[in-house]
């Protein structure tokens, strides 16, 4: 453990903790755009600069390991001036179209501009313009809004292990690129979308469906598989308009393409709402009791006529472990066969 002082408050943290993490643990706020708890430090946005006694220049707290006896000041007139300059520089190369931006209200850059009250900007000049739109079905990539924090590149590499995107070009022309700058073609897990601090990466399905006003957040569990990822449905007028996942859930905010983007079935008119039994060649709605009775009768019939091994059970990956357990128990004990398997084996 190392003991350091942050704004004269003593903090005791395990070795290897960064100054930023130590500050947050001590309840001290430091602004940041590129830092993310899941990712290795980047040190690119320069907002988390702090002064450390004995160091000749301000250093980024996200990259500096806490050391014994360190004395840190997270704010000072110089530090605040530098943060303001950095924010003004970012905003001088940003569309600043928050009025129509999908991310307005949940954008870290917008929040920092608000916090620092940046109404006037000393800097002006050429802004990056990218005409081409990415034709992939899920992820809207608006590179003009990209602040090059690198979170998307890092989560794709360090967490998802896919490496679908990388930095390309240099300096002012630097941008996040797909291979050969073609349309994004990846797993579409959308982890990059979830960590983007601006409106550069958003879900195509969310577009113009609603932001905060009139949108309710409903915490739920993903129905797609037995993992049981926690997710949060954003619901407006009884329709799901966006899916996110909170970082304190068991899946730590990570989702796959189905959980994040495949929610349209909920309001689909084709969705089965009641069991159907085919009568005279036509499916007719029925009750669960009637449906289960019919299944039980048929199973008994087959078992009596052909023996239990004429029946096999195949369960779904959408079921939980408990459901799968109950199912194999039913097949083995009630039906009396070992013919049971699970679609996730395929």
């Amino acid at each position: 453990m190392v003991t350091l002082k942050i704004n004269n408050i003593e903090a005791v943290v395990p070795e290897g903790t960064t100054v930023l993490e130590a500050a947050r643990k001590a309840g001290i706020y430091i602004p940041a755009l590129c830092q993310h708890p899941k990712l290795t430090p980047f040190g690119g946005c320069r907002l988390c600069l702090v002064e450390i006694k004995g160091m000749p220049r301000p250093v980024t707290s996200c990259t500096t390991p806490a050391a014994e006896g360190m004395e840190v000041a997270t704010t000072s007139p110089v530090i605040e001036r530098l943060r303001r300059t950095v924010l003004e520089l970012i905003l001088s190369d940003h569309p600043n179209d928050c009025m129509v931006c999908e991310q307005a209200g949940s954008c870290t850059l917008q929040e920092l501009a608000y916090e620092y009250g940046i109404r006037e900007n000393r800097f002006e000049g050429e802004r990056r313009k990218y005409a081409r739109k990415d034709g992939n079905p899920f992820i809207e990539r608006d590179l003009e809004k990209c602040i090059m924090c690198g979170r998307c590149v890092k989560i794709c590499d360090e967490v998802q292990g896919v490496e679908a995107i990388e930095f390309g070009y240099r300096g002012f022309d630097a941008k996040i690129c797909t291979p050969f700058e073609e349309d994004l073609d990846c797993e579409f897990c959308g982890q990059c979308v979830s960590v983007c601090p601006t409106g550069a990466l958003t879900g195509k399905l969310w577009s113009k469906k609603g932001r905060q006003l009139g949108v309710r957040e409903v915490d739920s569990t993903c129905p797609y598989c037995g993992t049981g990822c926690m997710l949060t449905y954003h619901v407006k007028d009884n329709e799901i308009v966006r899916v996110t996942s909170k970082e304190d859930g068991l899946n730590e905010g990570l989702l796959c393409v189905k959980g994040r983007f495949a929610y349209k079935y909920v309001n689909s008119p084709d969705r089965l709402r009641k069991p159907l039994i085919k009568k005279d060649g036509v499916f007719v709605e029925t009750s669960w009791d009637d449906a289960l009775d019919l299944i039980a009768d048929k199973l008994k019939e087959v078992k009596a006529e052909h023996g239990p091994d004429a029946i096999a059970g195949l369960s779904s990956a959408r079921c939980t472990n408990e459901e799968n357990y109950a199912f194999q128990k039913f097949i083995r004990a009630a039906i009396g066969t070992n013919n049971v398997d699970h679609c996730a084996r395929l």
């Binding site: 980047f42 040190g43 690119g44 946005c45 320069r46 300059t85 950095v86 520089l89 970012i90 001088s92 190369d93 800097f123 000049g125 050429e126 602040i147 090059m148 690198g150 930095f167 070009y169 240099r170 300096g171 002012f172 022309d173 630097a174």
Partner: peptide, 21 residues
Amino acid sequence: TRGESCGKCVPCRIGTKRLLE
């Protein structure tokens, strides 16, 4: 320097561009 900045950090990436402009 504007052309040779790697683009990682904001002050260099956008700052050198604005200085040059």
